[in-house]
Structure formats: structure tokens, C-alpha cells
Amino acid sequence: MAPSTPLPTARRRRLGTELRRLRERADMSATEAGAQLGATQSRISNIEAGRYGVSADRVRTLARIYDCSDQSLVEALAGMTGERKRGWWEEYRELLPASLLDLAEVEHHATAIRVSQVINIPGLLQTADYARAIFREAVPELVPHEVEHRISHRIKRQAVLYHENPPTYTAIIHEAALRMQFGGKAATKSQLSHLIAMSERENVTVVIIPFDGTAFPSAGHGIDCFHGPIPQLDTILLDTAHNGTFIDAAAQLDRCRLVLNRMEGVALKPALSRDLIHDIAESI
């Protein structure tokens, strides 16, 4: 096993959470699991908390101990091990909230991403000027260097959409977000032009919910869904004005997927969405 670390990554924490769930389904204590693995109770607890790394072979051994017959889950969990190289987001460890580093890591490993926003353009589709205007409205107010750190972090996150094998990305955006002029008219027009250009990428889909569309659920906050190698390993980020909250419990995942499905269902098709974005940009 790898040595302990005081700052477990989001991926390692999620692996630990899934191993704990397997143990609890097997109705086995950490002490009992450790005895069968040839480890101590504290070792099992530290693995489940993400403080200790674990090899793919040990994940498979734990799955056998827990009598898990779902081989797709076992192999997906085994695939979450062995990440030794520090991600680019670690350079921001002392500069930004840990939740933003977790976000970059989850995005980096996602096989597909689906997001919804009502007031803002989604972060992965924002221009630097638009992002700067958003961050300048933060409460409490951010000092200038904090604003610039957040902008550079956001722009680096966007590289995930340009990888050789990028995740598919679907953005469900309300018309209200298109009309909010963060940064003024020039910044807004530039942002909308960028949004149109991004919507034309093969791996990016942008759909708009118009003002005259039907009602939809959960309009108060954004939802980001990061797909794992199997649905059980999906992660949801609920984006609120106060903080982002990651959730991965099965019932919550199902509820948020349903919300996204219903929002996407009332949105315009991609071509009509692109036309609406263009019309709004021309009217500014």
C-alpha cells in the first residue's frame, strides 16, 4: 500500500466510500475485514477515509471478502487505484478552497459531464472576462489576486474539453443566463459568441430552456453530473450560492438525474438553441 497522506484526493475518498459501502452491505466490521485481509482495523478505516492508498489487487481481494459479485463495479473500483502523479490542480492547494480542487479532479476523470445553470453560463464554457465579472460579485468580496487565481484555475479546468478523447459535455442553460450582462455588453457578446463556438464542437451539446418554455424542477441552483465508468460511480455537484456540495448516494443520484432529464426535455434542440443564442447576442 502507498504511504498515508494528510490530504486525500476526491478520487481516493470516493474509492474509500465505495469500499465502506461494500463492507457494510456484507454486515462486516472493519476489525473483521482487517483480520481477513491481514491488516488492522485502523488500516481498513484509513483506506475507507481515503487517507491510505490501496492497490487494485487489494481492492479485488476486499471485494471477494465482502462477497461482491458485481464484476463491473469491482473492476471500476480497481481502475480508481494507482494514481500517483499529482494533478495540475494541486498547484492551487494553498490558494483556493479544497472543493474547487476536488471539482477539477472529478472533471478530469469523468467519462461524460452534464450540467444545468439558470443564471450563469457554466464554468467550462466561460470566457476569462465573463468569469472575472462573476468572481468580482462574490460575497464576501474577493481580493484581486484571489480573483485571478480563480480565473486561471477555471480556464485550466476547461482543457478537459480539448483532450484527445474528451468527455461528452452537455450544458442545459436557461435563457435568463444568456441575458445577464456580467461584465457589460462587450463581455456578454463575446461570451455568447464563445458559447456558440463551443456548441459546435463534436463533444459539446448546448441546449437552452426559453422563457416561454414549460416549468421545470429544481430551478434554484445548478447541477453538475460527472459520469463514472459505471452509473454507480457517478458524482453530482449541487452548486449553490454558498458552496458546492458533492453527493454520491444512490437515491440522490437518481433524483438529480431525473431533474436533469426533465430540464433537458423542456429545452430547445441544439440547432434552435444556437439560433436563440445568436439572436440574443445580436440584440445586445
Rank of each mutant, 00 (worst) to 15 (best):
M80W: 12
A177Y: 10
P144F: 02
E146Q: 15
P270H: 06
T235P: 00
I44Q: 10
A251K: 12
R157W: 02
L192W: 03
L268F: 04
H174G: 14
R60F: 00
E32D: 14
P122A: 03
T5I: 13
Y169P: 08
Q252M: 13
R23Y: 03
R58I: 01
Q41S: 11
R154M: 03
S152V: 12
A76S: 15
S55R: 13
G184F: 15
E91V: 08
T170K: 10
L195Y: 13
E264L: 03
A187T: 15
P97R: 00
D67T: 10
T205A: 08
T205E: 13
T5H: 11
H194G: 01
L253P: 04
R23F: 05
L195E: 07
L73D: 09
A177Q: 12
R12M: 04
A35S: 15
C68W: 05
E75P: 09
R14P: 00
L272K: 10
G222L: 04
P8T: 12
H149L: 00
R179L: 03
M28A: 06
A187L: 03
S29A: 08
L178F: 09
D70A: 08
I236S: 09
A10S: 13
S190F: 00
V204W: 02
R58P: 00
A128K: 11
A76K: 09
A98D: 14
H149W: 11
L103R: 07
S69Q: 13
A187N: 06
K156P: 02
T214G: 14
P231C: 07
W88L: 06
R157F: 03
I196R: 11
D129G: 10
T111C: 08
L15M: 08
N165T: 14
I44M: 15
A98F: 07
T61V: 12
V139Y: 11
S273E: 04
L100C: 07
E107P: 05
Q191H: 10
D239K: 02
C256Q: 13
I196L: 08
D70V: 02
I209W: 07
R114K: 12
S99H: 02
V118L: 04
L233K: 09
E90W: 14
R114H: 01
E175L: 05
I119F: 10
V206K: 03
F135I: 02
H278G: 05
L77T: 00
M28E: 09
T127I: 02
R114Y: 01
P97E: 00
Q252E: 15
A104Q: 05
G220F: 06
S45R: 13
V54D: 12
L253R: 14
E24K: 12
P229N: 01
V74Q: 04
D27L: 14
T127E: 04
K269N: 13
P166T: 01
E164L: 12
E90D: 05
W88Y: 12
L237N: 13
T9C: 03
L161F: 04
A78E: 11
R114W: 02
Y52H: 15
P166D: 06
D212P: 00
Q181S: 14
P122T: 02
